[in-house]
Simulated scan of single mutants.
Amino acid sequence: MAYQQILYEVRDRIATITLNRPDALNAWTDVMADEVWQAMHEAERDEAVRVIVLTGAGRAFCAGGDVTGFKSDDPRQLLDKLPRAYDFSRRPDYQGRASYFPSIAKPIIAMLNGATAGLGLVHALFADVRIAADDAVFTTAFARIGLASEYGMAWALRNAVGHASALDLLLSARKVRGDEALRIGLVSQIHPHDKLAEATYAYAREIAELCSPRSTRVLKQQLWELPFQSLHEAVQSDSQAMLDANVCEDFEEGKRAFMEKRPPRFTGR
């Protein structure tokens, strides 16, 4: 489909979704929200895609929500707009306006090329892996403009960095950069700005070429289910997943490739 505020490209089994409002630092709009949702599901359906990269055009990833979209006589509209059909096959927690990334059955890498603030940080936190430029700047933003955490950010932030660091970042709304973002777990990798794309796509290609799509799908689901499981439930779920994996085609191919000392030819089955 044709997109107005994002770019969508598939290459080397990697789908790239680029927020494309560089003059506005990729400020988030309803149009962008709808298009990212469409593109994520397009990539999920495409059997040629094994990894998804989400990034921003220009010098920012996403500097937050477009302030022109804040005007409303009914604050409930901020929660209710862009409703999606409820999917009974997926966890309801991961069907929200920003929190649906965990329900996408392929790894999502947020390539954070610059300012990542407010609603931009919300979406980055629901990605599976965050890789950032060393000069990228992160802030929750809300406390300094009189707002509260939105769309599940507090939950996702605590999940990523722990309770104490999450409170620090939310209460102060201070700016976090490179080394500190890496140290507290806000990002998984940092790279010089001019090497960010090279490093991110090398990582994405490694997953796309060497890892079973079936395994990445199951492993992603296992990790995002953990906040809702007791240890006993996690052990039961993992045990069933391992039994299923032992009789799948990808496991047989993985064993053959290992014995024959060649790259695997996984099908995802």
Rank of each mutant, 00 (worst) to 15 (best):
I14N: 03
L121M: 10
D46L: 03
L25Y: 10
A127V: 11
H123F: 09
R205M: 14
V53M: 06
A234Y: 05
G178W: 06
T139C: 10
L112P: 03
I17A: 08
R11Y: 00
Y201L: 12
Q38H: 10
A143C: 02
V176M: 01
N26Y: 07
L182F: 00
A241V: 03
L54F: 09
V31L: 11
F251K: 01
H123V: 05
A2I: 12
N113F: 01
G65L: 13
R84F: 05
R205W: 04
L171E: 15
A136W: 01
E9I: 06
R269E: 14
D46I: 08
V49A: 09
L231M: 14
T139H: 02
E198F: 09
G162Y: 06
F251T: 13
L196K: 09
R130G: 06
S215G: 02
V176I: 15
V67I: 13
R11S: 14
G268K: 05
I145K: 03
S165P: 01
N113G: 09
L78E: 07
M32V: 10
S149G: 10
A60W: 10
I190H: 06
R13P: 01
T68D: 13
A110T: 06
A63F: 05
V49F: 04
P83S: 11
R183Q: 11
V122F: 02
G152K: 04
R59S: 14
G268I: 05
R90W: 02
A173R: 07
L78R: 05
Y203Q: 05
L231I: 14
Q4C: 04
A143G: 02
D23Y: 09
A156K: 05
A105W: 00
K261P: 00
Q38P: 00
D34E: 15
K220G: 13
L112A: 01
A110D: 04
I145H: 12
W155Y: 14
D238T: 11
G162D: 12
S239P: 00
A181H: 05
G268P: 03
A173N: 09
T267A: 02
K175L: 12
G254R: 02
A63S: 14
C211P: 00
K71P: 00
V53E: 06
Q5R: 06
P192Y: 08
D74G: 00
C248K: 06
T200F: 02
D250Q: 07
H163K: 10
R13S: 15
V49Q: 11
K255N: 08
M242A: 13
F126D: 05
E249N: 02
T55P: 01
P92G: 01
L231R: 15
S188C: 07
E44K: 01
W224I: 07
Y3W: 10
A60S: 15
E42I: 02
R21P: 03
R174W: 01
